[in-house]
Nucleic acid binder design. Structure first.
Length: 611
RNA sequence: GGGGCGUUAGCUCAAUUGGUUAGAGCAUCGGAUUGUCGAUCCGAAGGUUGUGGGUUCGAGUCCCAUACGCCUCGCCA
């Protein structure tokens, strides 16, 4: 066995017409054997006589030596003609490298293959960028030539890791009694939620399928159907604006359990995550995960996905400063807002520039300023606003925030929403700048007790915070009619570091309650019937209590590898404008196709021809 | 829909306040080279500075528009 994790495992045989071994398999134990290798020329070092070729496949690199005294004229000539990324077939004998000429950087570094025959199986144009892990090509170029980018060992390894994790997830869930069932891609549009990707119907002009934003309804119907425990590694599509951790299509590990509640889902998910981290990066995730309610999260971190790798907790100080001399604080409280702060440990020496950068981070979320106090060694506070606070008030602020000499106290005075968002952004920036958020550390957190509804100011109605099939907390049912804002839901998020990694809930299993929720959401009777008639009807035929969750596979993998973009662990991702840089999708279709679908595009709305 | 940053050789980057013929490393091509492993040495070729317009005696550099990429606010149950 080699130490290369990508090398073939012992039970695998890669032997084919073209090769007896992979390029990562040969070691000192194989010395003397005659072997056939095939792969790409990753590098060629030509000494006129001796020629060294690094032969690469996805398992590793093996050095091939062409010695004019050992190989035919034709083989030497072939070796001379080799250029980067040519595909070669090599026959030769494994020999121990000369003493002192071993390469400790390669698992195969003890040996080399002395070529008897080198055959060029395929020539290659000069690639637009080098196929190495040192490659610094731009993202758009890498996407245009994704097949070359994926050939790089680093990218190759990510895809293999993705496979390993998916396999571990399947194994784990299968062992827990889950059955993998596929659900339709051509489905029905449902209101609420993200914008749908639509597929026009040829047979019914004017009607559309919607690509699923998630298999939500289907998985609940599978519970009604008695499958008990279902899962699926499912593609989900959402036609919304993109980010580093959002692609138009992405993959969720979708699962649902009957006769289960929140605790059951947590237990299964924790086991699954641990298995995934073990398979992915050989990391032992600590279970069970930490838990916080939504309210605690907002109070202590100003965010519903706080990074628990570090502290720097937020504290509200409205009560302390409501009568303070400092007008900004006083007026914010008087206007119904809040004043919140945090103590940045050891940031007391921050320069004006560094504080300005923190202020800018806060401003993105609407904060009009970031007030600050430096705590000096003598316990006094300094800074432009220090003069507004009497010594005893300063002492109480310091005590509330847990500040120590050498710390920087930071405050935002605004509406609760702006104060929380802004200070949370400041906290994240501090976590990164102060080196508190370390790569390779994973803080897992369940966030529970989200509100069931959020008020939609634009549409002047209540909207589901999670989705309309989420069960209310059974203790809060009496508030449904009187005070929807007060109703907690039985939904939960899994947060790892600062990313929402999974979202789920206990579902409504009673058709009457489901109808009531639709009514609160101001869906008309007609609409409920048209959109969800089949679903509420299904619930009425004896539905087991059930609950589920859907971790994002792409995010999970990106998080394991500390990558900020999920595109980095997808084989063929799209750009931020939802374009496939390689194929050019979305593309034009023929007049005939449009006609068959009954679609007419107004002349003035046609996109200009893309080069 | 809004804000920000970027776009110079195949790739990654440089080019003083607007000033001579836009440079370097890698890759490519030719030559030399029998123990290299990001080989080395010698030489060559490679550019409509994303695109369009403007200011100027003169624009890679300044202004406007636009395309593309990335980050971000909104959005994403």
């Amino acid at each position: 066995m080699t130490s290369n994790p990508q090398a073939s495992t012992p039970h695998q045989s890669l032997e084919t017409l073209y090769r007896s071994h992979s390029c990562g398999a040969l070691t000192a134990a194989d010395v003397g054997a005659t072997v056939k290798l095939a792969g790409w020329a990753a590098n060629r070092r030509d000494f006129g006589g001796l020629i060294f070729i690094d032969l690469r496949d996805r398992y590793g690199i093996t050095q091939v030596v062409v010695d004019p005294q050992r190989a035919s004229k034709e083989t030497h000539a072939a070796a001379e003609s080799v250029r980067m990324e040519f595909v070669l077939g090599v026959t030769g004998k494994v020999q121990r490298r000369l003493a002192g000429k071993e390469n400790p950087n390669l698992p195969t570094g003890q040996i080399e293959v002395i070529a008897e025959k080198v055959e060029v199986l395929s020539v290659a144009q000069t690639p637009p960028f080098e196929i190495t892990d040192r490659c610094k090509a731009n993202e758009d170029l890498r996407l245009k030539y994704r097949y070359l980018d994926l050939r790089r060992p680093e990218m190759n390894a990510r895809m293999v890791m993705r496979h390993r994790v998916a396999l571990a997830v399947r194994d784990y869930l299968s062992a827990q009694g889950f059955v993998e069932i596929e659900t339709p891609i051509l489905a029905k549009s449902t209101p609420e939620g993200a914008r749908d990707y639509l597929v026009p119907s040829r047979l019914y002009h004017g009607k559309f399928y919607a690509l699923p934003q998630s298999p939500q309804l289907f998985k609940q119907l599978l519970m009604v159907a008695g499958f008990d425990r279902y899962f699926q590694i499912a593609k989900c599509m959402r036609d919304e604006d993109l980010r580093g951790n959002r692609q138009p299509e992405f993959t969720q590990i979708d699962l649902e359990m009957s006769y289960a509640g929140q605790e059951d889902v947590f237990r299964v998910t924790e086991g699954m995550m641990a298995a995934a981290f073990k398979a992915g990066i050989n990391y032992d995730l600590k279970v069970p995960f930490a838990r916080l309610t939504y309210k605690e999260c907002m109070d202590r971190f100003g965010s519903d996905k706080p990074d628990l790798r570090f502290g720097l907790e937020l504290r509200e100080v409205s009560d302390l400063v409501k009568d303070a001399e400092f007008k900004v604080f006083r007026e914010a409280v008087a206007k119904g807002g809040i004043v919140k702060g945090l103590a940045a440990t050891g940031a007391g020496a921050y320069s004006r520039k560094q504080i300005d950068d923190l202020t800018a981070a806060a401003a993105v979320f609407g904060a009009r300023g970031l007030a600050w106090l430096k705590l000096e060694a003598d316990g006094k506070a300094s800074g432009p606003i220090a003069k507004f606070f009497a010594a005893d008030l300063t002492a109480r602020l310091v005590e509330r925030l847990g500040g120590k000499p050498g710390d920087l106290l930071l405050f935002v005075a605004d509406s609760a929403k702006v104060a929380n968002n802004s200070l949370s952004a400041v906290r994240s920036k501090l976590g990164a700048d102060l080196g508190l958020a370390k790569d390779g550390e994973f803080a897992c957190l369940w966030v529970t007790d989200f509100p069931l509804f959020a008020w939609d100011e634009e549409e002047k109605r209540w909207a589901s915070e999670h989705h309309p099939f989420t069960a209310p907390n059974w203790d809060d049912l009496q508030h449904l009619d009187t005070d929807p804002a007060k109703v907690r839901s039985q939904s939960y998020d899994l947060v790892i570091n600062d990313w929402e990694m999974a979202s789920g809930s206990v579902r409504i299993h009673d058709s009457r309650l489901q109808k009531k929720i639709f009514e609160i959401l101001k869906l008309s009777e007609d609409e409920i019937q048209k959109r969800f008639g089949f679903f509420t009807e299904a619930l009425s035929y004896g539905t087991p209590p059930h609950a589920g969750i859907a971790p994002g596979l792409d995010r999970l993998l990106a998080r394991m590898l500390s990558l900020s973009s999920i595109a980095e662990i997808m084989a063929f991702p799209k750009t931020q404008r939802a374009i496939d840089a390689m194929t050019g999708a979305p593309g034009d279709v023929s007049e005939r196709q449009l006609k068959e679908l009954g679609i007419v595009i107004p002349e003035e709305e046609q996109a200009p021809e893309k080069k």
